[in-house]
Amino acid sequence: MGSGVEARKGRSDGLVALLFLIPLLFFYGLYYLYAFGFLAQVSRQRVSLTFVNAVNVGWDNFRLVATDPLFRRSVLNTLLFAGISICAALTVGFLLAMMISTGVRGRKLLYGIFLLPSLIPLSLFATVFGQMLETKDGAFNSLFRAVGLPGLQQDWLGNTGSGYAAVAILLVYLIGLPIMYYTSDVTSINLSLIESATIDGAGTWQIFRLMLFPLLRNTHKTVILSVLLGSFRAFDVIFFSTGGQPGGRTSITGTYIYNAALGNDRVGYAAAASLIVLVIALLISFGQLLLTRKDR
């Protein structure tokens, strides 16, 4: 009897769960699986935005994308820029977050300065930054002239080194979200640990390095993964700041795919590039998942 009632209750619970899940499954299916299926289909075609008169080209689009040196550069740039962002987040971002959390003077100003890019559209922020890179009237070179250091002026978008430096400056400034993660998670640390360390004579730097940094290990993981995957969606940051200059050398996967889709009948090619990027991003997520499991 008892087991029969339990079984009925269990079935009923399952149905309720299914009812709750159906809307989610529907939207998941609609927005993701349909899109992925469509992308996979189109990636093997030569077709325009109207999606009529499609010509099946097999794996040609994938072969052409994979052998394009510009695509390979864009993937490497994406990973490089992600690396720069992660380093900035784990160092500058972490230190700023700790300073803000420990009640240093001017913390609200600091918080505001670094959070600002996260509060306004990135396209607007990147456009303003792009204008700051102008050789003659740009803010950076004007500043160098104003402080008597004209020798530091750069043709920011005229050579590869300064182009990468410009992107790095921009990325270092875009650490508002990691700072938020850290300031939020640091409140969960048991303060008695810090107090004990202080009583035992630990200095500020030792507390930062030997206690807070290891204690926020899980936050580091969140920051690393979010920044890494976010770098695959950083189209607006690059498109509106350097525009991929000089000579396309600061292009990332997002700008590559956007430009690839501009020609006639190029939607399939762009879809193939998107799928390859998607696979790379999934592999990174999968790798992170494995590492996290190992830690447990």
Binding site: G14, L18, L33, Y34, G37, V42, V47, V52
Partner: peptide, 26 residues
Amino acid sequence: LVALAAGVLATALTTSACGNSGGVGG
């Protein structure tokens, strides 16, 4: 059962996505 329902929905949507491309509009 839940997984099967999700799978059926996913397959249906993916198949319909594949089936429709190339001929939308007309």
